[in-house]
């Protein structure tokens, strides 16, 4: 292989290569994660709706026992994590599209991440508390 072949194969600016920021490093990461969490939520969302409908008139002990069942606790935690992850990725795009004042945009982007992490942790702790305490 001659030096000429190398030049033809990679047309990026030398600085771009050095920084490792070329295409497909992380560019599709947001897009792909949004789709993967969406696919998970199709299944988990339908399961969640069915579970809530089953608990419509359940008394407290039944509702608690249902959530405490191992499969239900597992799927509920998976649902909540996928839900908050997907929500943050979606809200991020909405904020980036419509909030044009840079400092407001950054504040909102950080705020939704803080809120989502708090919400996810609170939900997981609640499920664990129900599942692990008799």
């Amino acid at each position: 292989m001659s030096a000429r072949d190398v030049v033809v194969k990679d047309r990026r600016n030398a600085l771009k290569i050095a920084r490792g920021l070329g295409s497909s490093q992380s560019g599709v990461g947001h897009w792909w994660t949004q789709r993967v969490t969406a696919a998970a939520l199709v299944l988990l969302g339908l399961w969640f709706v069915a579970t809530v409908l089953c608990l419509l008139h359940a008394d407290y002990a039944t509702a608690r026992a249902t959530v405490a069942r191992p499969w239900n606790a597992l799927l509920l935690i998976a649902f909540v994590l996928a839900m908050f992850w997907h929500a943050v990725l979606g809200l991020q795009v909405v904020i980036e599209d419509y909030v044009h004042t840079r400092w407001k945009e950054v504040v909102l982007l950080v705020a939704i991440k803080f809120l989502a992490v708090l919400g996810a942790l609170a939900s997981v702790l609640a499920v664990l508390r129900i599942a692990l305490t008799p």
């Binding site: 509920l76 909540v80 839900m83 929500a87 809200l91 919400g119 939900s123 702790l125 499920v127 508390r129």
Partner: peptide, 23 residues
């Protein structure tokens, strides 16, 4: 799709509230 997405993001708070109250 966008509008319902934002509405559902707010609705996540209801899921958290339900779980916290159950616990």
């Amino acid at each position: 799709h966008r509008a319902t997405g934002v509405a559902l993001a707010v609705g996540t708070l209801l899921v958290v509230a339900g779980l916290l109250h159950l616990a």
